[in-house]
């Protein structure tokens, strides 16, 4: 009888533990879900660049690449001190383009494709312009967004 009793006690103790584990396996994911991830919020059609104008200025090529959704972007500081951003993927065969401050152009080294600073293809194989993005500087932070038609 007492044997039976301790067995029953053990089982009900186990059931209690199981119920707790059950609640845990529901509450834990839900709680983790509610903890905001590092990146804060879904990036939509705008990104805040993780660097400042002076860092671009410090670059030898006066330009930096950045991630924009699934694509790579290029932001350049023109001779006039203007910031321009565009897709960094050459429209010819997908090489990454670079700023050539010496020539005042965007240059693709793969086949000498050239674009002007507005992303327009001006010579060489590229068949299309680079997509140009909109740049906004607010209190020292740089925001890049896609044109919304």
């Amino acid at each position: 009888m007492s044997d039976n009793n301790s067995r029953r006690n053990f089982l009900s103790w186990l059931t209690g533990l199981g119920s707790l584990a059950f609640l845990g396996s529901i509450i834990y994911p839900a709680y983790k879900f509610l903890v905001p991830p590092e990146s804060g919020e879904a990036n939509v059609s705008q990104v805040k660049l993780p660097f400042t104008r002076s860092e671009i200025e410090g670059e030898e090529k006066k330009a930096k690449t950045f991630k924009f959704g699934r694509t790579l972007g290029l932001i350049v500081l023109t001779g006039e001190g203007e910031l321009k951003a565009m897709s960094a993927t050459c429209t010819h065969l997908d090489c990454t383009v670079q700023h050539r401050p010496d020539l005042g152009i965007i240059w693709c080294s793969c086949h000498n494709g050239r674009y002007d600073l507005d992303g327009k293809n001006i010579s060489g194989p590229p068949p299309k312009p680079l997509e140009l993005y909109i740049v906004n500087e607010i209190k020292g932070e740089i925001f890049v967004s896609k044109e919304t038609a």
Binding site: P29, F33, V35, P37, E38, S39, E41, A42, N43, V44
Partner: peptide, 11 residues
């Protein structure tokens, strides 16, 4: 973008 964010970034 937000659904992608949910499935890729949010635990």
């Amino acid at each position: 973008e937000s659904v992608k964010f949910i499935v890729s970034e949010v635990s």
